[in-house]
Amino acid sequence: MSAQPTIRLAVPESVAAGEVIEIKVMIQHAMESGYRRGALGERIPRDIIKFFRCSQEGKTIFAAEFHPGVAANPLLTFHMRAERSGTLDFVWTDQAGQRWSKQAELRVT
């Protein structure tokens, strides 16, 4: 795949105001721990995502810090109270500062 990893989001399309909704996100990433060795005994360097942040118009809804023990292709499930419509911004930042993001529209009725 290209430099942009596959990101999957599960956000309800339309929700009632005040309702608590479940959000699921998954990103394709090897989450190489840095503790493994290759077939020839060489050390495989650490390559992990360090931070995840979900925000709505700048306001953080959920944030997480990742560590080397997290499995590949991390899946996160979290909840939020839907108060207003707006774009949800999901951003992953890896150890080198590279960022990947995807947006979803939340419509509160």
């Binding site: 795949m1 596959t6 999957r8 599960a10 699921k24 998954m26 394709q28 590949a72 292709n73 899946l75």
Partner: peptide, 12 residues
């Protein structure tokens, strides 16, 4: 169908 990581490849 969401948690199954194989669907990352299917989506790609």
């Amino acid at each position: 169908a969401f948690a199954n990581p194989g669907y990352l490849w299917v989506a790609a």
